[in-house]
């Protein structure tokens, strides 16, 4: 979205340097822009572009016959990808499944939060600030600690389980720890702020006079929301769902702390391949597969949502 904006300014700046007296300042301005970009470019080249190539190269390595554990020879062994897919497609599917459920849950929980902070608390900066701090507050504690806390919340002897059993939602011998439910809960909780903040930023800018205009034109509250507020907040929803879905699908902390052997996500598998079995080619090819799938999904999603028009 912002990339598109950057590209369009680049494009419009392009033909300006036509010549004459104008050319000199334009060239100078462009040089300045490159200088400003340089630190970031260098940093990303060294710590992102090079490692990506290293990763992609590793994904095609071949095991040296008779060599020690973790030693591989450079090669172009494309079968690595097929073997990784064959061995880990359940984890891949499960990861995207969990991420999807967590994203939907975060949207359902997060949208009303963002709406209240941006629209209902508008004009009350103190309340707005307090609510925003509450949304961001979890970041003051470590991600791992917060996830471990969910173990306590969902523990057999805790009130959540007791309450659900009392209501008959959970069978008498049921439990929540080490289940898919716990993993999705953890994912939803951990990525909720990434859903709330973009939607908040979007709704914050919304002109509430449009809501008045909706009421004036015979649309009641729910209709005004569905026809005006919701469509206008689509860019925020798209940004929020992407910021939730992408890290959630690659997450390995929640499933390892809150799940069991049957809830393994792809992040965990990559983690284990890299660090436990030292199977670098498989781990690298799984990483590449994950990246490609996410990239394709995001492109299809942004197209589908048609949010370019709104920005």
């Amino acid at each position: 979205m912002s990339i598109a904006a950057a590209l369009s300014t680049e494009a419009s700046a392009g033909p300006v340097g036509g010549g004459g007296a104008q050319a000199q300042p334009v060239r100078k301005a462009r040089l300045g822009a490159y200088l400003l970009l340089a630190p970031g470019m260098v940093y990303l080249f060294v710590f992102f572009v090079l490692p990506i190539f290293a990763l992609l190269a590793t994904s095609l390595y071949v095991k040296t016959p008779g060599a020690e554990l973790g030693v591989y020879d450079p090669a172009f062994r494309w079968q690595n990808y097929l073997e990784s897919l064959g061995a880990y497609y359940p984890e891949i599917l499960r990861s995207f499944g969990y991420a999807l459920v967590a994203t939907v849950a975060a949207l359902v929980i997060g949208y009303p939060m963002a709406y209240v902070i941006a629209i209902r608390a508008r004009g009350k900066p103190l309340l707005q600030g307090l609510l925003l701090v509450l949304v961001i507050a979890p970041f003051f504690t470590s991600f791992i600690l917060r996830t471990i806390a969910w173990k306590q919340i969902l523990a057999d002897e805790a009130w959540v389980v007791a309450g659900m059993k009392f209501l008959g939602i959970l069978p008498p011998d049921g439990r929540l720890t080490a289940t898919a439910f716990a993993v999705v809960c953890g994912l939803t909780y951990n990525f909720l702020p990434f859903m709330v903040l973009p939607i908040y930023a979007n709704l914050e800018r919304m002109d509430t006079r449009l809501v008045e205009a909706g009421g004036d034109l015979y649309a009641n509250g729910p209709t005004t929301f569905a026809r005006i507020t919701l469509p206008l907040s689509m860019p925020g929803i798209v940004a929020g769902t992407l910021l939730t879905f992408i890290p959630a699908s690659g997450d390995y902390v929640n499933s390892s702390l809150l799940g069991n052997n049957a809830t393994t996500m792809i992040g965990q598998a990559i983690d284990r391949r890299f660090l436990v079995t030292l199977d670098y080619p498989t781990a690298a090819s799984l990483s590449a597969i994950l990246m490609i799938i996410i990239l394709v999904l995001v492109m299809v999603y942004v197209r589908r949502a048609g949010t370019e028009e709104l920005l």
Partner: peptide
């Protein structure tokens, strides 16, 4: 409620719906 009144307003800021075409703005009511 406003949506049940036989009244329409031309707002100072116009308050046109930016995500709808001109025709759909007019057809909204």
């Amino acid at each position: 409620k406003p949506y049940n009144r036989p009244v329409n307003t031309v707002f100072q800021s116009y308050a046109l719906f930016p995500h709808l075409s001109v025709l759909e703005n007019v057809a909204f009511g």
